[in-house]
Design a protein around this nucleic acid. Structure first.
Lengths: 288, 288
DNA sequence: CAGTGGTCTAGACCACTGG
DNA sequence: CAGTGGTCTAGACCACTGC
């Protein structure tokens, strides 16, 4: 796929690799990187079919470490200088790799402190995935959301769920239904499907007792970090289910929000169907 | 608020090009920052209240040139080297400024060709502001949208419109109503409000005859470039208006999409209320 | 104070585009 | 081939954090 350091002589860093006073070949990661057979993929003087810059490769390596759990959400990762030494590249190259990961909200830089693995526990990113806001006032002005777990059961994936979660029909899944209320009024009904394997042991009690965002619980308890998501939004009429749980008349237009959330490497880990009342709230979206 | 290299005498071509033998002192950056007249804004040894890095200031200058129309949408801007000379900074500093502007979709870099002012005319960014996609197939798979201008008239801003467009109540505005159809089926009804002054001369014929996105017409005819927008989304029941123009039964849930679009410097330039049928389409949103 | 990320420069070379 | 943006390195210094 890509190649690392196909011509290190040119960048003048052969020095510290060839230094006789530095006989140790310490980090296996570096070794694997430098000696990787992938380097052979590099065509000699051909038309450069798959050029991948060094910083992209470093980014991939950091991504692998994140995925492998070497650094967990909220934790401090090694400094740029350390990473530069580990990967045998300049600090500037590591910086550019981290820049992109920070732009994708996978890492969080804090000047003077270090670089941290992003987490859903932080106040500032609390609402990165929930775009529903009250028509008046600001987020959280209604006080903390009340969360009622209606149901939490094991079931099996039907065709839709299986496709969304990249499972096979009939695979075990966990199904959660909950209602979010703001200021005492039920606003959101959510049906959530999770692959059973990574979330083994998840219970209604756990969900009910946990303070903080559900995705933060997923991080701490199941080592699953949601990285991005896609939402498909429609307007639908309320059914008797919504009448019961959201206290709206049947036929009332509701926002239907179908979300697929992904963890590292674009692995789908959650299907969520949300039904939003939009009489007092609205879905706010920024177009850049 | 910010300060920038004004003392070109000091750092003009004279100084650092005529003295190549001079050691890397003095650092031009530090010099400029400390010695610039504007530096008076910065308290001497105080707590650095308003530090603004050089590249941010360069970014602001480029932004000003964009806003002033020095380079128009689609045009090539000067090369990094030229800009570096113009602003008396290094190419790397200009590069970082352009990096951010490119990330915000204000500029478009093309390797080997140059950097261009972003435009709504390009195929690739055609749908950056229209998030409604067909449930099956891809964008444009239905062929080009049919656009019918229902109405285009002058009117006066009511309180809502005035607030959205930062006008005064009763200020002149242009009001456009149009229907977008895909595959022969009307899907979107839009009511659009524009401040009359910048769009003086806009006519229904012009809108009807123009091929390409409306925002592209705004760029070429009125020198107004939409840079970002915010959308508030709700589910609402169809009225008799929608019955007529979208051919849906009254009460049918529709997506209500209220957009405020901004040009450079966060100046609101358009209010748009869209009504989307979501029986065959959905609003697709990526959460990062 | 040391250590972190952040800024700025300088220079080399690479990949891409077009004449 | 020259000119553009893209990558990589090296080194200096700044701003911020916490001990």
């Amino acid at each position: 796929m890509s190649y690392i350091r196909y011509d290190s002589e040119k960048y003048g860093n052969a020095t510290y690799r060839d230094k006789p006073t530095m006989p140790s070949f310490p980090d296996p990661v570096i070794e694997s990187v430098l000696m990787a057979p992938e380097a052979a993929v590099v065509p000699a003087a051909s038309a450069t079919p798959a050029f991948s810059p060094l910083y992209q490769q470093i980014k991939g390596l950091i991504l692998n470490s994140l995925r492998a759990g070497e650094w967990k959400p909220g934790e401090l990762i090694p400094s740029e200088i350390e990473l530069a030494a580990r990967f045998r590249v300049s600090q500037g190259t590591v910086r550019k790799a981290i820049d992109e990961l920070a732009a994708e909200n996978l890492l969080l830089r804090k000047q003077g402190k270090g670089t941290f693995v992003a987490t859903h526990s932080e106040q500032q990113v609390q609402f990165r995935f929930l775009k529903l806001v009250p028509d008046s006032g600001t987020r959280g002005s209604e006080g903390p959301a009340q969360r009622d777990i209606i149901e939490c059961k094991r079931s099996r994936a039907n065709a839709d769920v299986a496709r969304a979660l990249a499972l096979r029909n009939g695979d075990n899944v966990l199904q959660v239904r909950r209602v979010l209320s703001f200021g005492g009024t039920p606003i959101i009904l959510e049906d959530i499907w999770l692959p059973a394997a990574p979330f083994k042991g998840l219970s209604a009690e756990q969900l009910a007792n946990y303070q903080g965002p559900m995705y933060a619980l997923f991080e701490t308890e199941f080592n699953v970090r949601m990285v991005r998501a896609e939402e498909k939004i429609r307007a639908i009429p309320a059914t008797s289910l919504h009448e019961q749980l959201l206290r709206v008349a049947p036929g009332t237009p509701l926002l239907s929000v179908e979300r697929i959330a992904y963890t590292y490497h674009d692995e789908p880990m959650e299907l969520r169907r949300g039904y939003y009342r939009t009489d007092t709230h609205h879905y706010l979206n920024a177009l850049g």
